[in-house]
Design a binder for these strands. Structure first.
Length: 949
DNA sequence: GACGTCACG
DNA sequence: GACGTACGTGACGTCT
């Protein structure tokens, strides 16, 4: 084993100029973190930045033997956040965000790594690394030494001096001399501080002068020499806005000048001579490399030491990174070129042709089916026609409900509806013929209404969803035709028009109808051929077959059943709300000194922050003041009466427009019930979504809103029963992340938020429990310290501390997050326990940190939310059968609200039904998955939904 | 159609 | 050195 050591003892050699290398450690690690791919050490901790840092130090130390190499060296770190600049300006660095969570634990390792190289690590309270560096630069220059600052921080460029001080940007392997500084700032190092002051710096919150960016700042300093020079000559400035800004913000400019000025006369924490490089003892370094599992560097050490140049070390870094598991991210398949000839489709208007198509489908064993109707709402829609496809460009359209487009045209020749249905029924129900549809739930309902139970079937929309959820393309037929085949489908608009003059499909002439409808079936069949092989190779078959595909009839039946809503009750609520709203409006206008449109956030913002002159408004990207609930609550708590009134007004108008009024208008006149539509592909995580109307967001959180729930009632002779999973996402998290305390708590039936409160805060009083509840959810969403702090109303340091403590107490959670992120980065998607994928590429690799961060948080959450969705879907699929088996055919499943199922139960059968429902829901994972936690289900019932909880 | 806001899990 | 700040939805009203 050899050690890294200096070839000579340079300090004692008169002929050799001492050369001090000052490494700006803090800034390096930030850059390394973002530039280098994530790397995990053998403790499972993210150490990408530490690896980058270690490799850089190695490279520097290895340069000892070179002419320009160091004789002295130190790593400079930031010791504290508070410095003299905060005394000068309390906003200094005030908005600087906390470092990324997986970077924080790497900071201490920087010191460990530095010690491993036996290089001094210097930090001093009250001084920023930049200042310490400046002090050493001055002292070294005075002693006649040369200095290299290892950093690319623009503030440090003030110190560059040809022949004495340069900078080394190790990431780009670039020396920065005076010329380079001049290139960047248009002025020499001595004027860099002046330019920086005018520019300002949003990260450090150096104010600068508004409207002055790098270009303007450079120009001004070139012209006038300094900030003071610019301010003195301000009258000469031509541009009026610039001149005004300079005058108005003269003090900010002077303050900025002082903020960017480096302290260079503080006493040195360590004397210069102490920084001498004597050689690097191998043991501590070896131990460090072993501990971190940096094998390549270790091998190099063992195998003869770093006799190499920097270039080799850089290769070494690359080699190490290359040896990580190769990226398994697969881009979506390239589109397949297809020729669609809609003129080949046949319009079927006689029995012989119909029988011919049925025979062809039966002979082939599969057929694509699509229904056309007069309305997008399948509950009330009437059939216009049915299309079938058996091969590329081989499709037909069977009109059954077409009428003349206008008074002049006659009803076209077509087969009678009932005859067509009678002929198709055996085919559609034939177990030997696979029916292929796109968004088959719609067609399933249409046929169900005709007494046809379509089976077996495949749904290409669901297949697309199970293969490609989260990818950038949509799963509807038109989008898929484009993304999979680069084919532009005939647009519905071109047939039926838009707006008031839009016609229904049953009025479209048969020729066009045949082209449109035939194409839908043709494309669906082509999609099936394209997706089918992928289902097995990409492991989507399991979630499709076990979770999503069987759900179609289940959801279809729920939609058809609908839920009864008490119209008179809603009308009464509407009236009460309206009266209250009127009163509030008067009082708001009074408080605001005049009427305005309260519902306009823009006008409201202008009234509050303009007319009433209130302070502290945040502005959004549109330049308008934010008037969301947080802001108004803040104002209200400061005693602004108007804000409270507006909040009340908002709540009431929301309830009236979205619920009491809208719900009345969607009551189906035939059934007297409300029929939502559940989308199986609406949420990337695998959750259902509900629309037209959305019955998954009926109010419950406030007393007033809750009244809306009372409008959802049972038919006479029935009660509404609600069954919901208790804490399902936390249970899944406890299982997936393998957290013993949480699993134990769930097994014992303990209150999970109390357990968390005890772990985090030592005791579980009411307040701590609420805090713990917030933290429990926040963590699963990938919250930042800042975000948690703002939600809990505590300083961000406390948010940070709580998160740290959470991870310390529940290390499994941190491991889960790290593992999930590592997986999604290398594979491009996440998976639920049942294998459902959600794709996050390319956002997970976005160079935009905000986009990437968003993808990371979503990826942390997706397996948990998605597993929960898988579970309740499985329960739903089994529910009707289980109820029937228990003789409870009269029990109807009506709604799903993510972790809740709502049923209509015949009077007197509540107990039995509750027992079956609870059992089916609680055992939803079995037998596929054995959960380490029990699934607890709470069941309640009553006359209306409000009473069922 | 974009945006802001707010209802739910 | 910047970016924004908790995940997933759908609906309504305003404004352009």
């Amino acid at each position: 084993m050899s050690e890294i050591e200096t070839a000579e003892a340079p300090a004692t050699e008169k002929t050799v100029t001492n050369h001090l290398y000052l490494v700006d450690g803090s800034s390096y690690i930030f850059r390394a973190y973002h530039r280098l791919p994530p790397l995990t050490n053998r403790h499972g901790m993210n150490v990408g930045a530490v690896y980058g840092y270690t490799a850089m130090l190695w490279k520097l130390a290895d340069g000892l033997k070179q002419a320009e190499g160091p004789t002295h060296m130190a790593v400079i770190l930031d010791a504290s956040e508070h410095t003299h600049r905060n005394e000068m300006y309390d906003q200094y660095k005030a908005h600087r965000p906390p470092p990324p969570e997986d970077l924080v634990p790497q900071f201490p390792l920087i010191r460990v790594a530095t010690r491993a190289f036996s290089i001094p690590c210097i930090e001093k309270a009250g001084l920023e690394a930049d200042d310490i560096i400046a002090c050493y630069v001055m002292a070294a220059k005075k002693a006649g030494w040369k200095v290299t600052i290892v950093s690319s921080d623009k503030d440090l460029m003030q110190l560059v001096e040809d022949g004495a001080v340069d900078m080394l940007d190790t990431m780009n392997d670039r020396r920065i001399d005076e010329a380079a500084v001049h290139d960047k700032f248009g002025v020499g190092p001595e004027k860099v501080g002046e330019v920086l002051a005018l520019m300002g710096d949003s990260v450090d919150n150096v104010p600068g002068v508004p409207g002055v960016g790098p270009k303007t700042a450079t120009q001004l300093i070139q012209d006038y020499g300094s900030v003071e020079g610019v301010l003195a000559a301000v009258e000469e400035i031509k541009k009026p806005k610039l001149k005004q800004n300079l005058i108005e913000h003269a003090e900010a400019a002077r303050l900025s000048r002082e903020l960017v000025r480096l302290v260079c006369d503080a006493p040195l924490p360590e004397p210069l001579d102490e920084l001498i490089l004597k050689g690097i003892p191998p043991e501590p370094l070896k131990e460090f490399l072993e501990d971190q599992g940096f094998k390549t560097l270790l091998n190099r050490m063992v195998g003869g030491g770093p006799t190499n140049t920097g270039a080799t070390v850089r290769n070494d870094v690359m080699a190490a990174l290359d040896r990580r598991p190769a990226s398994k991210i697969t881009e979506p398949d390239a589109p397949e070129k297809i020729e669609v000839d809609v003129s080949k489709y046949e319009t079927v208007t006689d029995e012989a042709a119909l029988d011919r198509w049925i025979a062809e489908a039966r002979a082939q064993g599969y057929v694509a089916v699509d229904t056309e109707t007069d309305c997008i709402d399948c509950i009330i829609a009437k059939l216009a026609g049915i299309s079938l496809a058996t091969g590329p460009n081989r499709a037909c359209y069977i009109p059954v409900g077409h009428v003349g487009g206008d008074l002049l045209s006659e009803t076209p020749n077509q087969l009678p509806l009932q005859l067509v249905l009678d002929r198709l029924k055996p085919l559609l129900e034939d177990p030997a013929v696979l029916k292929i549809g796109h968004n088959l739930k719609y067609d399933w309902v249409m046929f169900d209404k005709a007494g046809i139970d379509v089976a077996p079937y495949d749904d290409t929309m669901l297949m697309s969803f199970d293969l490609d959820a989260g990818r950038s393309f949509g799963h509807n037929l038109t989008d898929l035709a484009k993304s999979q085949f680069e084919h532009e489908c005939i647009s519905f608009k071109s047939l039926c028009g838009t707006g008031a003059r839009q016609i229904t499909f049953d009025k479209v002439p048969l020729k066009e109808a045949t082209e449109y409808a035939g194409e839908d079936a043709d494309i669906a069949l082509r999609l099936w051929h394209r997706f089918k092989p992928r289902m097995t190779t990409e492991n989507a078959e399991r979630v499709y077959k076990r979770v999503d595909q069987p759900l179609i009839p289940v959801i279809g039946r729920m939609e058809r059943r609908g839920v009864k809503v008490d119209r008179d009750y809603l009308a009464g609520l509407s009236k009460t709300f309206s009266e209250e709203i009127s009163k509030l409006e008067e009082r708001i206008y009074e408080a605001a000194c005049g009427p305005f449109t309260i519902g306009s956030p823009q006008q409201l913002g202008d009234v509050l922050y303009g007319r009433l002159g209130l302070k502290g408004g945040r502005k959004g990207k549109s330049g308008h003041y934010s008037t969301d609930v947080n802001e108004l609550e803040r104002l209200a708590s400061e005693g602004v009466n108007c804000a409270r009134l507006v909040l009340d007004w908002r709540q009431l108008t929301k309830l009236r427009s979205t619920y009491t009024e809208a719900l009345q208008s969607v009551i189906n006149p035939e059934t007297g019930r409300v029929h939502t539509s559940f989308s199986l592909t609406g949420a990337q995580t695998g959750r259902l979504s509900s629309n037209d109307p959305n019955l998954q967001n009926i109010p419950i959180r406030t007393e007033l809103g809750r009244k809306i729930r009372d409008a959802f009632v049972a038919e006479p002779g029935y009660v509404l029963m609600s069954a919901d999973y208790s804490q399902i996402e936390l249970r899944i998290a406890a299982h997936m992340a393998d957290v013993p305390q949480l699993k134990e708590a769930f097994r014992e039936g303990a209150d999970i938020h109390n357990i968390t409160a005890e772990e985090l805060f030592g005791s579980a009083d009411r307040e701590n429990r609420n805090k713990a509840k917030t933290v429990n959810f926040a963590i699963l969403y990938g919250v930042s310290p800042w975000g948690l702090a703002s939600r809990m109303g505590v300083p961000k340091e406390e948010g940070q501390a709580i998160i740290a403590r959470y991870f310390e107490r529940f290390p499994g959670i941190r491991q889960y997050i790290d593992d999930t992120l590592q997986f999604v980065r290398s594979h491009g998607y996440t998976k639920t326990l049942f294998g459902r994928k959600t794709h996050f590429y390319p956002n997970i690799k976005s160079p935009n940190p905000s986009i990437r961060g968003g993808a990371e948080r979503a990826a942390i959450n997706a397996p948990i939310q998605g597993t929960s969705a898988d579970l309740i879907k499985r329960a739903m699929t089994r529910m009707d059968g289980a109820l029937a088996e228990a003789g409870l055919d009269g029990v109807r499943m009506l709604l799903q609200v993510h972790d809740e199922l709502v049923f209509e139960v015949p009077d007197g059968r509540e107990q039995e039904a509750a027992e079956v429902v609870r059992r089916v829901m609680a055992t939803a994972a079995e037998p596929a998955i054995k959960l380490d936690v029990p699934l607890d289900v709470e069941v309640g019932w009553g006359e209306h939904w409000g009473a069922a909880h």
